[in-house]
Design a protein around this nucleic acid. Sequence first.
DNA 1: CTTGACCCTGTAGTAGCTACAGGGTTTCTA
DNA 2: TAGAAACCCTGTAGCTACTACAGGGTCAAG
Lengths: 149, 149
Amino acid sequence: MRIGELGQAAGVDVETIRFYEKSGLLPAPARSQNGYRTYGSMHLECLAFIRHCRALDIPLNEVQRLLEFIEQPNADCGDIDQLIDTQLAKVRARLKSLKALEKQLSSLRGRCGANHIASECGILHELVAAAHKEACVCHGHFEPRTLAT
Amino acid sequence: MRIGELGQAAGVDVETIRFYEKSGLLPAPARSQNGYRTYGSMHLECLAFIRHCRALDIPLNEVQRLLEFIEQPNADCGDIDQLIDTQLAKVRARLKSLKALEKQLSSLRGRCGANHIASECGILHELVAAAHKEACVCHGHFEPRTLAT
DNA sequence: CTTGACCCTGTAGTAGCTACAGGGTTTCTA
DNA sequence: TAGAAACCCTGTAGCTACTACAGGGTCAAG
């Protein structure tokens, strides 16, 4: 099948398919006489594998490694456990920081309940006040990245 | 103070500071004779404001708008509520999808508890099996993006 | 024959930084 | 004083994972 059909079958953009091929994830397929790519079911399964791993937020370079493991059934798979553990840790860390963020935003949201002009906006006041505290060098540094990963 | 001092005071990279100036968020400061930037406390507060909003995952274009509101105290601030609401909704959606992701990864992790070769890896088997199901066109499409936002 | 859909390669853009490259200025130490 | 290291400048490029052109070729249907 041609690339459009593959895309339809896997629910993936043709441009994404070409991207994966260029990235080395998806093997380059045979070409027909007019230069069009020609795919079989093996490519469809490979593409589905990639998309499934992406759904698990696994970075492309790690998906690459998993694909290599499939190619080499006798390789040691300790790294696969590690990979999933790493993903799990990342997800948990993000959950934690997002919960803190939700809490803060909710609190901030509670500061303004009705339309009025900017000078009376509780949200703005709070943001400015927070910045003022942070800009006071005797209070140390607020590390924003830590919170919002 | 010079850019390095400002960066130290706010806990921000000098390159990020230049980036913010270029992006129009941070006003361009005066320059000394040698071309070095010269900052005062107003810049420090502005920078702290930006970083605080970033910590709340507010996109830079929205931070820009908030800064404009501060400049125009008589402007209507209905949009600020909207902005925080939008952020809250985004955070909640992400929390939801990450929880589902954590659940899936935990389940997947449970499939492999000890070191063995790749052909015996429960994780790999599960990933391949999932891809096989997905690659079967009669089962419809699995939309990965929906899950992993 | 024409038109629209599909295909091709290569380039560029997204968001928010971060890291050079190449060169000028300042500060400190020997 | 000289030299080295730290700091400063502008401009460019890279990261991740796509996504969207631009410009041109191919195919199928009307």
